[in-house]
């Protein structure tokens, strides 16, 4: 059965990531990844960065990965992105 909040969000055309407390991930080419509404940085390595989210850990694989900025809500990642993996 679907989450009633999801139904409401779709009905009222509200942003789901806010109503459902979901992470919002924006990828710009293979050079930039912006993760909003994360739950903390788990692993940081130039070739792998893992972030905890409400839907489990989210991993960005690539090379020369750097964290441009990280705060309570947002994590901005730069480098050469190869793959994005959920529960990696």
């Amino acid at each position: 059965m679907r989450d009633p909040r999801s139904i409401m969000a779709r009905f009222f055309e509200l942003p789901e990531e806010i109503l459902l407390d979901l992470p919002k991930i924006t990828v710009i080419g293979d050079a930039h990844v912006l993760i909003e509404n994360h739950r903390g940085l788990v692993r940081f390595h130039p070739e792998r960065v893992t972030v905890e989210t409400t839907r489990g850990p989210f991993t960005v694989n690539g090379t020369d990965l750097q964290i441009a900025s990280v705060d309570r809500e947002t994590l901005s990642l730069t480098g050469v992105v190869r793959s994005l993996v959920w529960r990696g």
């Binding site: 994360h38 940085l41 940081f44 390595h45 130039p46 750097q66 964290i67 441009a68 705060d71």
Partner: peptide, 16 residues
């Protein structure tokens, strides 16, 4: 960085 992330401390230009 795990602790910083947990406490919400803003870090910039994080690199090894």
């Amino acid at each position: 960085f795990r602790e910083a992330s947990r406490r919400g401390l803003a870090l910039y230009g994080l690199s090894w």
